[in-house]
Design a protein around this nucleic acid. Sequence first.
DNA 1: AGTAGGCTGGACCAGCCAGTCCAGTCGAGA
DNA 2: TCTCGACTGGACTGGCTGGTCCAGCCTACT
Lengths: 199, 199
Amino acid sequence: MRKELTAKGKATRNRIIEGAAAVLREKDVSIATLDDVMARTRTSKSQLFHYFPTGKDELLLAVAHHEADQVLADQQPYLGCLDSWEAWQRWRDVVVERYEEQGEECPLGSLVLHLGRSTPGARDVVVALMRQWQESLATGIRALQTAGHLPADLDVEHRAAALLAGIQGGVAILQSTGRAEHLRAALDQGIGDLRRAAA
Amino acid sequence: MRKELTAKGKATRNRIIEGAAAVLREKDVSIATLDDVMARTRTSKSQLFHYFPTGKDELLLAVAHHEADQVLADQQPYLGCLDSWEAWQRWRDVVVERYEEQGEECPLGSLVLHLGRSTPGARDVVVALMRQWQESLATGIRALQTAGHLPADLDVEHRAAALLAGIQGGVAILQSTGRAEHLRAALDQGIGDLRRAAA
DNA sequence: AGTAGGCTGGACCAGCCAGTCCAGTCGAGA
DNA sequence: TCTCGACTGGACTGGCTGGTCCAGCCTACT
């Protein structure tokens, strides 16, 4: 944050964020404590408050940013060039695999929920993530259009929004029930309907 | 729970559950305390532990059950008889309106997330809710089939699962960003694709 | 009327955990 | 080498909150 961070300081700060992220992947925010983070990152409490002066929420927000970046990064390179049906299919597989593997916990979701309205900026992290995600999907659909695989009068944003909603819901259901079939159904149905729109 | 509950006792127990539900609609689980519930329901701590001997989690689980029942109840009578395109449209409007009004908080979601794996039965509440919900949607699609509005070879469960995922995702996005457009997009796209399948 | 047992009030306790404080170390530039 | 400030360790605290306990009230049933 501040300019006065030395290389060593930056490293420690990152270690804390990544360690905290790891902790939050194992236990819920409401259960995780600063002591957990300290143990995992081999830091002391004064370090935590040195790098995140306003306390826990500031650290949590930093972790949220970190996790949000991760979400889209995990879908690359496929999400970046959805210009053929094969690319869409590969992307679909990556998404399903990623979330099936993650399974139980959604650090970002519970993080933002926990920070909520009280912490300014928490909501913005999700808003930005959703915007970027939908943007990528829309770009992919447009790529299919220019390649002649889809009619030009398709409402791109609408379809991208619906697809994104399907993914989010599929993930949510996966996380609360443990079954990934809804995520698969949403993706397959969404892509399938897109393909049908080609004819 | 126990048979020995008097009418008065039952009333108090219900008052506690409903009061707790009201509290949880205002603040997150992790922030809400037993004192909040006590204040809202004008009960003492001994009453809370009298009706929910094992403590907070037991109360929270009861609230989760209560909220889960509410979800489907709010969508009636439309969800119960999705036998025409008009009925689907009206149901869509009810869902959008309900969640737009609820807006910010999803008591059930955060509740189950908070109880998590530690409390047996928490996950089951959501699983059961999702099953019933999807069942209702599937029944509605089948009704359209028998009425001749949809081809008989449609994969009903698959479509119902995708639609449900879209709803859940739309709601999730609505709650974390404040915008309902994804929920609307998911519903409209889902129903629209269904209609297109008719032709 | 008597009584057993459900029902209620509220004081009290113990553990947890974010946040504070200060003393001390390390490292880079003058 | 000196010095300043970033960096680190760890003891301490204060408030919050779930949970306990017991004494007394109310009510259904005999």
